[in-house]
């Protein structure tokens, strides 16, 4: 294989695939988080936004067309990301068949060492989330395809707030993943060096704090009765 077509076969190429799919998802999460906050504007405002997503790109794109394209990009990215993560992780394990009796970590942070576990948590969460709010199957007590506002409020209030707690746990995993991921992405793409390192670290902190807190605002507000 030649050029970028060789990326799926090399260790660095796989990381590049992860970095690019990762940045696509960071962008998506930022948009999604912003959209979610519109729930504080009330049912009509929020449902109007959910409907509006289907008119994205109008009049150039037809009803729900651009949304469809976006979904393909996001689903394709996450599949590529998870595939690269798992194959790379297996390879990394195989690179040291005889392990150490003692092996100290001098520098690696918790976020760095838990990327794969955080990633798997996020993957399981995404499936749960789709069942919960997109498809309304199995895990939602009273799903109404026309009323996103109702689905969110009832979805979080039900089952003794357990769904809300699942969201919060997943967001903690996301925060850790984003902290190492954001910095790591620059390193992988060859965009990091001494001059920018501290700036990139700060950016990683900002991304890892702002995105999860923005998301957490909704389930927390439902739990504390601010949204009902």
């Amino acid at each position: 294989m030649v050029g970028i077509m060789s990326f799926p076969n090399t260790t660095i190429g796989k990381k590049v695939i992860m970095a690019i799919s990762g940045v696509i998802w960071v962008g998506y999460l930022a948009m999604h988080m912003y959209g979610n906050l519109k729930i504080f504007g009330g049912a009509t405002y929020f449902n109007h936004y959910a409907e509006g997503l289907r008119e994205l790109g109008a009049p150039v794109f037809g009803h729900a067309h651009l949304l469809f394209v976006a979904r393909i990009v996001f689903v394709g990215s996450i599949i590529a990301h998870v595939w690269a993560a798992i194959t790379l992780n297996l390879r990394n394990k195989a690179s040291r068949p005889v392990t150490y009796n003692q092996h100290q970590k001098l520098r690696a942070s918790t976020a760095t060492l838990t990327m794969i576990y955080g990633g798997v948590t996020i993957a399981v969460f995404i499936i749960y989330h789709l069942l919960h709010f997109t498809l309304g199957l199995l895990v939602h007590p009273d799903f109404d395809g026309q009323n996103a506002y109702h689905n969110v409020i009832v979805g979080f209030q039900s089952y003794a707030y357990i769904p809300a707690i699942i969201y919060l746990v997943a967001l903690i995993a996301l925060a850790f993943h984003l902290y190492h991921g954001t910095w790591s992405m620059f390193q992988t793409l060859g965009l990091n060096n001494k001059t920018y390192n501290n700036m990139i670290r700060s950016l990683a902190w900002a991304v890892a704090i702002v995105i999860p807190i923005g998301f957490a605002a909704v389930p927390l507000s439902v739990m504390f009765g601010i949204l009902q």
Partner: peptide, 27 residues
Amino acid sequence: GGCTNMGECEAVCPKDISLDFIARMNG
């Protein structure tokens, strides 16, 4: 194995080789 940008290598290197070189190689 592949690099997961942990920095353990830089921490033990007796010659202070920097992670910057890895970024440069990736680029």
